[in-house]
């Protein structure tokens, strides 16, 4: 299972990558595998401000629905519009072209509440 080591992870299987004040958020390979073929994604509007662990969207497969939550507080700066027509990108490339949103981070301190790749690996094994 691919778990890139430069990302942070949540217990709900979102990942976040940090580049200065901006971050990219998606769901992990494990999450997309559990969901199966993804058929629909609902994402927030740009400029929306959301708190850490607040729900920001929905990912759906044929027979399952999963809410996705903000790994950190922040303002949405971009959403992955390509997913509207090609939600399968999340299955094909969850850490790359299947990203969900870009966020302007408010408080980097919140990252302390997330897992690094080693911790996430252990978390998955436990689950």
């Amino acid at each position: 299972m691919n778990i890139p080591n430069d990302l942070y992870y949540t217990e709900n299987h979102e990942w976040i990558s940090i580049d200065g004040k901006e971050a990219v958020v998606g769901i992990s390979e494990h999450a997309q595998e559990e969901l199966g073929d993804i058929v629909f994604v609902e994402l927030p509007s740009v400029e929306e401000e959301l708190d850490q662990f607040e729900e920001f969207g929905v990912i759906e497969s044929v027979k399952a629905v999963s809410d996705v939550f903000m790994p950190v507080s922040g303002v949405i700066v971009e959403v992955n519009e390509d997913l509207m027509d090609e939600p399968e990108k999340i299955n094909e490339d969850p850490f790359g072209s299947g990203w969900l949103i870009k966020v302007e981070i408010k408080d980097k301190g919140e990252l302390d509440e997330l897992m690094d790749s080693t911790e996430y690996q252990a978390f998955l094994e436990e689950e």
């Binding site: 629909f40 759906e60 044929v62 027979k63 399952a64 629905v65």
Partner: peptide, 8 residues
Amino acid sequence: QTREQHIR
């Protein structure tokens, strides 16, 4: 079907 009660 994800709109419906048996899933959502």
